[in-house]
Design a protein around this nucleic acid. Structure first.
Lengths: 235, 235
DNA sequence: CGGTTGTTTGACACGCGTCAAGCTTCGTGG
DNA sequence: CCACGAAGCTTGACGCGTGTCAAACAACCG
């Protein structure tokens, strides 16, 4: 199982994992359970729509996509998740997960049994507050995605997408300007409400315009200001 | 302030309001605070983007729209809320509300100070569980809206919108087939990621097809099965 | 090495946005 | 209570941005 990895520094569940044991009235078994790990191979599901809800997860290594299903079989990617980000909150509402979460590469997560979290939440005020913020933050993120899908052009969406990824890498002390797109063009398109051809064409054009450099899944941002203009004014 | 109104029956915050006083270790002042009301006139804001976060709300009477703002000034309606539905959760993440919430008609809400709710949540397990579910349910709702914006055609969006409103009215013991659209065509369009003209045209066509009957803001659903087909298969 | 999956690019089509005009409803003040 | 202006709705004509279809290439994997 091993000790806390370096990725814990920026983990969204850190305040929970890192809770001071002295604050706990009940048990020390907490630690073992909270720190369970699970590995998920590329293409496999961490959980699927309809599975009984038991755990929250934090991405330790790798990356995931969240896929939401429509009654008639259509599906859409509704989120990408990298190290430190939390997964599984959509299961709280109905005791069953409301989406599929699939690994984009060989990945691992921290497992956090929800009943334990609830218990902890009642004992430690700081934990409670943090869990609330985590849920609310996810809500704000989704509102922003709705904005993207509802009001932005294809160019604006792709530019905003690249900048979002960039800032999330940066928050994890990786390069903000060069990174690898773990998702396919089709998955990217699904998330952005575009067809894969449109994503491909847009990336190519951005390259011709000197905004970025693309080579398959490798991306390098050359002109942040320019990309930002495209994202916010379509220029 | 008056006793619980009939709308409390289906209120998303009912388990909080209706908490058994005997379960509380601390205080009976709870009741007074939880049951505070506030009236909001048509066009006025319950809260605005950036306001300091203090309360959650439950709609008592009337209806509201939630408007999310983009950095560059663009805005989109990201939700409509009617009696029994909860408002304000987007403020938890950053201690400031992340959207504008505006009354579509003269309306009233139950006010629920969040620090009090946190306190209550630590004392009463049932309340805690319910608050979590409430937040998660909002997340699921937004995921569904993302699906709508990302994968559906104009016809499908409008049909799904009407059916969603219908089921929400029904859940409140109102007619599922006849109701009044409190929002303008422009607001509807903003929410659905369409222009107001497209919304108008689509409603007109649905009427010609015998699916609904429209008269300004009054809508009557004539063919649920047909509408459902349009929403799910575009037929 | 070969088959499968993913990517790029082109040509074309069409759904929805844009622009515009006229009508209806609502709100307010005389 | 009516009058007037503003706001909201409907409908038409037209154009553009994406989607669709197709073909060739590239990368991955067993």
């Amino acid at each position: 199982m091993g000790g806390p990895s370096s990725s814990c520094k920026s983990c969204s569940l850190r305040p929970v994992c890192a809770v001071n044991p002295d604050e706990l009235a009940c048990s020390q078994q907490m630690e073992d359970l909270v720190l369970g790990y699970r590995h998920v191979k590329k293409g496999e599901a961490l959980y699927r729509f309809g599975d009984v809800f038991t755990n929250l997860y934090a991405v330790r290594t790798g990356s995931f996509k969240k896929v939401t299903l429509l009654a008639d079989g259509r599906e859409q990617v509704t989120g990408f998740y990298v190290s430190g980000e939390s997964l599984g909150v959509d299961g709280i509402a109905n005791d069953h997960y409301a989406s599929d979460v699939v690994a984009l590469e060989d990945s691992s997560v921290c497992v956090m049994p929800f009943d334990l979290l609830e218990l902890l939440t009642r004992e430690v005020k700081a934990v409670q507050h943090h869990v609330f913020r985590m849920l609310s933050a996810e809500l704000v993120r989704e509102s922003n995605s709705m904005m993207l899908l509802g009001t932005m052009t294809a160019d604006e969406r792709v530019a905003a997408f690249l900048l979002d990824l960039s800032s999330r890498w940066q928050a994890r002390s990786y390069s903000a300007s060069a990174f690898v797109l773990r998702m396919t063009r089709e998955e990217t398109g699904s998330f952005l409400g575009l067809k894969l051809e449109t994503v491909s064409r847009t990336l190519s054009r951005f390259q011709k315009q000197g905004l970025i450099q693309v080579n398959g899944k490798e991306v390098r941002i050359l002109d942040f200001a320019g990309l930002n203009d495209v994202a916010h004014r379509g220029a």
